[in-house]
Amino acid sequence: MTTHPDAADGALGAPVELPWRVLPDYRCFGCSPANDQGLRLRFAHTADGGIMCAFTFDRTFESYPGVVHGGMSTTVCDEIMGNLLVLRLGVSVFTTSLRTRYVEPLTVGATYRCTATTEAAAGDTGPHQAQAEITDAEGNAVVFATGAYQPVTEEQARKRMAMSEHEARLVETALAELRTP
């Protein structure tokens, strides 16, 4: 798996700082730069208020010869939609439903871009909806996804996540910064 620095270094939009960065042992499979086994997705803001990332899957994520396993594209979509909602709402969210439509298979070694959008706004009650689209190098849509995400309170997040009290306070402080105009 290769993420593309230009997707998060400002060339395609302002880089995204995720609130999870404050955790000393942040290991998210989708977006942690410290997880050698993970996708290491790096996000950038888009002009329309969404976020995007660019990536290339290697043969580690292969299904049929030369084809990326479909679950990997769904993982990218879920990761980007969930993080967009966290950034937009300033609270942790959990996926409650996810629907993926594959138009074309992703090819090992090809570069793709995933973009997420939502109409959700801070203060709205959940569940919240988000959409993601993966496009190929020519801009053709190859995967569409929609998801529903339920916001959780700080207490609910602490119960569902393996965080110490100190780590929970660090994350809550980072989330509160997102809620501050």
Rank of each mutant, 00 (worst) to 15 (best):
M1G: 03
T2W: 06
T2V: 10
T3F: 13
H4D: 11
H4G: 05
A7K: 03
D9S: 14
D9V: 01
D9A: 12
G10L: 06
G10I: 06
L12Q: 05
P15W: 08
E17P: 00
L18M: 01
L18D: 05
P19C: 01
L23N: 05
P24T: 11
D25Q: 15
Y26F: 14
C28H: 10
F29P: 12
G30V: 00
C31D: 09
S32F: 02
P33F: 04
A34K: 15
A34M: 10
N35D: 05
D36C: 08
D36N: 04
L39G: 14
L41P: 01
F43Q: 02
F43R: 02
A44Y: 01
H45E: 15
T46N: 09
T46H: 04
A47C: 08
A47E: 15
D48K: 10
G49P: 08
I51P: 05
I51H: 07
C53T: 15
C53M: 03
F57I: 01
F57C: 12
F57D: 07
R59F: 02
T60F: 03
T60P: 06
T60N: 09
Y64L: 05
P65Y: 05
V67P: 09
M72F: 15
M72I: 15
M72P: 14
T74R: 13
T74Q: 15
T75G: 15
C77T: 13
C77I: 10
E79Y: 05
M81L: 14
M81F: 11
N83H: 08
L89Q: 15
G90C: 04
G90I: 01
V91H: 13
V91L: 11
V91C: 13
S92N: 13
S92G: 11
V93K: 11
F94D: 02
T95M: 14
T96P: 11
R99E: 14
R99Q: 10
V103H: 15
P105N: 14
P105E: 13
T107M: 12
T107Y: 04
T107H: 12
T107E: 10
V108P: 07
A110C: 07
T111G: 09
Y112Q: 14
R113Q: 14
C114P: 09
T118H: 06
A121N: 14
A121V: 07
A122H: 12
G123I: 13
H128A: 08
H128E: 04
Q129W: 06
A130R: 04
A130P: 07
Q131P: 00
A132E: 13
T135K: 13
T135L: 03
A137D: 07
E138L: 08
G139A: 06
V142C: 12
V142F: 09
V143D: 07
F144M: 09
F144T: 09
T146V: 10
G147M: 10
A148R: 02
A148T: 03
V152I: 08
T153L: 08
E155K: 04
E155F: 06
E155N: 00
E155I: 06
Q156L: 09
A157N: 03
R158Y: 03
M161N: 08
A162M: 10
M163G: 00
S164W: 02
E165N: 04
E165I: 00
E165K: 06
H166R: 06
E167R: 05
E167L: 03
V171Y: 01
V171H: 00
V171P: 00
E172T: 13
T173W: 04
L175P: 07
E177V: 01
L178M: 06
L178D: 07
